[in-house]
Simulated assay, not measured.
Amino acid sequence: MSFLYCVQKIIGKFINIICLVYGYLRYQSRKNQLPAVKNDVLLIPAVEIAQRIKEKKAYLKRIEQVNPIINAVIKSRGEAIREAEPIDEKLESDWERVGHLPLLGVPFTVKDTVGVKGMPFCGGLVSRKNEIANKDSIVVSNLRQAGAIPIAITNVPEALMSFGTSNCLFGRTNNPYDLALIPGGSSGGEGALISSAGSIIGVGTDVGGSIRLPAYFCGIFGHKPSNGVISCDGLFFLKAPELEPLFTAGPMCRYATDLKPMLKAMAKDQISRLPKIDSVVDLSKI
């Protein structure tokens, strides 16, 4: 082995050592500099993402499974699937207009006293058994404008006058936790369906507990906002002057985190009546 070759080997190793030391000193302070993954979607396998995209019928299928048991839905909207189909195309072609919509593509259900065009609008009354809403109520229209899609109408007691949910048109709605028990009322169909994972969010109405009691009985979340925050245009209610100031629509959700965005969508511009809705509440001071 020649002397020159040995010198070259030594110099080469020396250069490698210098490079390693330089690299360590240069980059050691920058390790773990990547931002943490905060969106779980980024960690889902491709096959699961593809499956989720295809599951546009998931809630309608779930309704088919649970409704024979709990009897919460009086009619589903098959056209909801057609309304959901263009969403992917809209996201690609018109992101600036639709990308900001807070409930884009989210399915929701509606109590049978809240008008959805072309759907039953009975209020649980035999005298209204053939009544069909000829237009969307303002609250449903607002939710549609937020990107949400109505998928079903849910059961109520006759004229909303019960803390249970039963009528002579569609029968009795059962509590999903115990079929022998009631789901509360008058938004009992919503409470039972959301609790059964047949819906994720829904529209209820309330005077004296009609959102809050089903939420409590069925283990979900509901909120009765102040009167006037959500429009009552297109809602069925037996008129009583002493009760009208107490009547309002409100959100019902499986998860508490959905209450505020849904309330904002339902109220739209009227949300200005709640100027502190985004204020942080210090629970220790309550």
Rank of each mutant, 00 (worst) to 15 (best):
I201T: 11
S187M: 12
I200Y: 09
C253A: 15
P261I: 02
G188P: 11
N155C: 12
A148H: 01
S141A: 11
T248H: 04
R254M: 04
Y255K: 15
I230N: 01
S187N: 09
A249I: 05
G147M: 01
N142E: 08
R212E: 06
L243Q: 14
G204A: 12
S196A: 15
E190K: 11
T173S: 08
F217R: 08
I151D: 02
T205I: 07
R144M: 10
G208N: 07
G185M: 03
A146D: 06
L169H: 05
S195F: 07
G208V: 05
F247K: 11
S187R: 07
G164T: 14
I153E: 01
P225Y: 05
M161E: 11
I151H: 05
P241R: 12
T257G: 05
M161D: 12
S187A: 14
G250A: 10
I153P: 07
G208I: 06
P150R: 00
R254V: 05
I211E: 00
G198S: 06
M252A: 10
S166L: 12
L160N: 02
C232S: 04
G189F: 03
F163T: 09
C232I: 13
P241G: 03
A159M: 08
G188H: 07
I201E: 05
K239C: 01
V207N: 06
L181N: 08
P245V: 12
F247G: 00
S141D: 13
F236E: 15
I220F: 06
F247T: 04
G188Y: 03
L238C: 04
S187G: 08
T165D: 04
S187E: 05
A192I: 00
E242R: 13
G171E: 06
A192H: 01
G204Q: 05
F247P: 12
P157C: 02
E242V: 14
D233Q: 12
